[in-house]
Amino acid sequence: MSKPSGQRSKGVNGWLLSTPALVLLLLAASGPLLIVAAYSVMEKGDYSGVRWVLSGEGWFRVLFERDIFDQTVSLADANLSIFWRSVKLSIATTLITFFLGLPTAWFIATRPASSRAFWLFLITIPFWTNLLIRTFAIMEVIRNQGILNTALMKSGLISEPIQILYTDTAVLIGMAYVYLPLMVLPLYAAVDRFDFKLIEAGYDLYASRWQILRRVILPIIKPGIIAGSILVFIPSLGAYVTPRVLGGGKNMMIGNFIELQFGQGQNWPLGAALSTVLLLVVLVSLVVYTRVSSRDNQDG
């Protein structure tokens, strides 16, 4: 600091000071990802693990399956349907959280400054609360003997409990519930910066409320929408706990399918290949996101 520090020493110090963090991350987060990639091209071991022989079988099995009986090769419908279910549920989760989240973020941002912190705090509590506890809480609500069914039956609307638990709907409700705060927070940040004079200007030009929402508000808060969608979509796609607890071992998502390969399926290379696919999908979404959001920033 007392010395005139050039570009070079800044960089050296920057790297030096970051080294402990980087070493830790490479050791216990980024580095092992490379091992996953390596395992995906090995031959599967008898019950678990791999044999150190190169093999494309893991990757082959991501897309294709051999019939157990006549060895005919076909497209792996089951794998694709799990992928499709995951993508479908993740998109649905993103949409639900958006339709609930935008009004919520708007509501918070338009509160008087004094009470805004309180409302924001109400959103952050679930955000930091254990995902498992929240999944458990929603399970208690939708079980056959849960409060929802009990209330509906007492009110005479239904005579038999509705089976929600262990269905795709249960997984969807659960994910929308646990990821809602992830949508609200970035949307709030965007709405908070929003200049409400623009709405006034819109009304002055006889725009309808719908037009104002669509033409004025949404385009301006678009970065917040994209950030929120990414923040909800990515963890939904890799969700493990929520489908495991609410899906009853039958309605798998990619996360559970990967786990299956490392457990009962005893096919580590396939599990590793599936993990790599998931990782690639996430990276592509992130790249698209940064592209779109940086273009938006340039547009002003």
């Binding site: 987060a29 092992p32 990515i234 990967i258 590793a272």
Partner: peptide, 20 residues
């Protein structure tokens, strides 16, 4: 690298650490 844990799905990191 620092923000990597925020981006990679937890299940992938979990599987990677299991193997490693």
């Amino acid at each position: 690298i620092i923000n990597q844990p925020l981006m990679v799905p937890e299940i992938v990191t979990a599987v990677a650490l299991l193997i490693f």
